[in-house]
Computed example of a mutant assay.
Amino acid sequence: MTRILIVDDEPRIAEPLIYALEREHFSVAHVALGEAALACLARDNVDLVILDVGLPDINGFEVLKRLRQSNEVPVLFLTARQDEVDRILGLELGGDDYVTKPFSPREVVARVRAILKRQGGNGSRSAVPLWQLDEAGARVLCKGEPLSLTRSEFLILAALLRHPGQVFSRAQLLDICDSDEDSFERSVDTHIKTLRAKLRPLQADSLLATRRGLGYYLESA
């Protein structure tokens, strides 16, 4: 089933869209913030994103800019600023289409179908997302490849994936491990070193970054 992510903080806009898309047999997820959208896209396979420009935390242009560093999923903008989006879409950001407010849900569904058709059916121009976090299965996939992780490595990487860009101190990561085997903060350094070694064949080790004197964080792309 084709998966659509709606990123909009206004229920009066999101709810009719969800209803209209689900009636057409799309699988729909909804988040209200840009950071939540980036986390979702890093974690899950999505075939198309419907993205509002005016979000409360970071605007839709910034979301798309960060997304395009690692993912080519098609993006349909929702906007009240037709002239600005027209210009942006023709430049470097890489949006696929836009709908200007006010609009009908049926128009959005038609635009979604047109984008998906251009993309060959399922809409994804990227074979797999950079990261996939499978909480239930306690595993992480990088570029579609499952990583062989110890319990502590999984817990550390999962925490970093849930909050890309956030710096975690050694003490915080040690608490996350919550294991008798990890009783010293320096053990966190060992786990990070091992994680980087496991990510190196996938050319993703540099994304596990150090903030000197503070701790570790995961680059957002």
Rank of each mutant, 00 (worst) to 15 (best):
V99E: 10
D83A: 14
D83E: 14
L64H: 06
E84G: 00
P102T: 03
E135C: 08
F26I: 05
L78C: 04
P16M: 02
F184P: 00
D52G: 13
A80S: 15
G90P: 04
T190F: 11
E185M: 09
L17R: 09
H30D: 01
H191P: 07
D96M: 08
E35M: 08
S70W: 14
L195G: 06
T194F: 06
R12F: 02
K117H: 11
S220R: 15
V85W: 07
F184V: 02
V7L: 00
T100S: 13
D189A: 06
D47Y: 08
K193R: 13
F154T: 10
L133N: 04
R12L: 09
V109G: 02
L141W: 11
H191V: 11
C142E: 02
P16Q: 05
R87L: 15
G144R: 09
S124H: 02
D86E: 12
I18Q: 13
L38C: 09
P102R: 04
R113P: 00
D178C: 08
H163P: 05
I6E: 05
A37H: 09
G137Q: 06
E135N: 11
D134L: 15
Q69W: 05
R186K: 10
I115F: 11
F103W: 04
I115P: 12
H163Y: 10
A127T: 10
S70A: 15
F61T: 07
F77W: 06
R3S: 15
G215E: 06
T2D: 12
L93S: 00
D205P: 10
G137E: 07
T210D: 10
V7T: 01
S187G: 02
H25Y: 12
I156D: 06
F168T: 00
P16L: 02
A20T: 03
L214Q: 15
L207N: 01
L93C: 00
A197P: 05
E35P: 01
G120Y: 05
E107Y: 12
D8E: 15
R111Q: 11
I156A: 08
A20L: 09
A110V: 12
P102F: 08
G54I: 04
D205L: 03
L89W: 05
G121E: 04
L174D: 06
L33A: 08
C142P: 00
P74M: 11
A80Q: 07
Y217V: 06
P11L: 01
L5T: 09
G123A: 08
Y216N: 08
S179I: 02
L55A: 13
V109P: 06
L141D: 11
H191N: 09
G95M: 10
N71I: 01
T100W: 04
I176H: 05
L214P: 01
R111A: 03
A114P: 04
F168D: 00
V53M: 11
D86Q: 11
L64E: 07
L218A: 01
Y217W: 12
L91I: 07
E35T: 12
V49I: 12
I6L: 11
R66W: 07
S183Q: 09
L208Y: 12
Q119W: 07
A158K: 06
R106W: 02
L130P: 00
H25P: 05
R186I: 10
A171G: 02
L214D: 10
A32Q: 14
R162L: 05
D47H: 15
P16K: 03
C177E: 02
R186L: 06
A159W: 03
D182M: 12
N59Q: 03
L141E: 13
S169H: 00
S152N: 15
A39T: 15
